[in-house]
Simulated scan of single mutants.
Amino acid sequence: MATEYWMSGPVDNIPALLQPVAHALLQANLEVNDLMQDFPEARLWERPADVASPGFHLQHISGVLDRLLTYARAESLSQEQLTYLSEEGKPGKRLQELLDLFNTQTHKALMQLSVTPEDTLTDFRGVGRKQLPSTVLGLLFHAAEHTMRHTGQLLVTVKIML
């Protein structure tokens, strides 16, 4: 594997305090795409040892990334996002569709990071229906760590399956 993103210097156009978020998202994107390159489509929704399927992880990573970025912008979830949430884990999408969605969400996240002023990182944001308190930085950090958590789970699941 090439040098990991966090050891490759700053990501262009990303504020200094958000570099770790960008590095984690880029690393996850690289690892997921490499891992799933030759994965058999027929096994996408299998649940080995009753753990989440590879398809679920791919759906969930993209959905949570989208939702957390929405909250960081101080926006409410759209009906489309709520529908997507209700369909996470349900078979239906093909592997390439899920990878394309993850790649798109990663790109959108990087674009949002690039226009996020550092002086807003401690601004409070409400999360979910209960409007639980967080900060812009908390939401962006959680988007990165959640993405990496599911990337690791996906990696283990796929390794067990193949």
Rank of each mutant, 00 (worst) to 15 (best):
G126N: 08
L65S: 09
N103V: 07
D123T: 04
K93T: 01
R47K: 15
D123E: 14
Y71P: 00
R67P: 00
T147E: 14
A16L: 10
T106Q: 11
T151R: 12
L35N: 03
A74R: 06
E118M: 03
L154H: 08
R43F: 04
Q27R: 03
Q37M: 09
A22F: 06
M148W: 12
T147C: 15
L98N: 08
P133G: 00
V115S: 14
A49Y: 13
F102G: 06
T3F: 01
G92F: 12
L17H: 13
Y84Q: 12
L26P: 06
T147D: 12
L162I: 02
E88V: 11
L95P: 11
Q81S: 03
A72Q: 08
A49E: 10
M148C: 10
V51W: 13
Q112T: 12
L35G: 10
Q59G: 04
H107C: 09
E46A: 05
L140Y: 15
S134A: 14
I61A: 07
V115W: 04
K90W: 11
P15R: 03
L26S: 07
R47C: 13
A72C: 03
T106V: 06
V156G: 11
T70S: 10
E75C: 07
F39D: 04
L18F: 14
P117M: 10
M1R: 08
L65V: 03
A28K: 05
V156A: 14
K93H: 08
Q153Y: 04
L137S: 15
H23V: 00
Y84L: 12
T83Q: 15
T83Y: 13
L85P: 00
E80W: 00
P40W: 07
L18N: 04
S62A: 13
T151K: 15
Q27Y: 09
E31N: 08
L25S: 06
K90A: 13
R94M: 13
H57F: 15
T122Y: 11
H150Y: 07
H23W: 15
T83I: 11
T151N: 09
L155N: 13
G9M: 00
A74C: 06
L101E: 13
Q37A: 14
L68N: 01
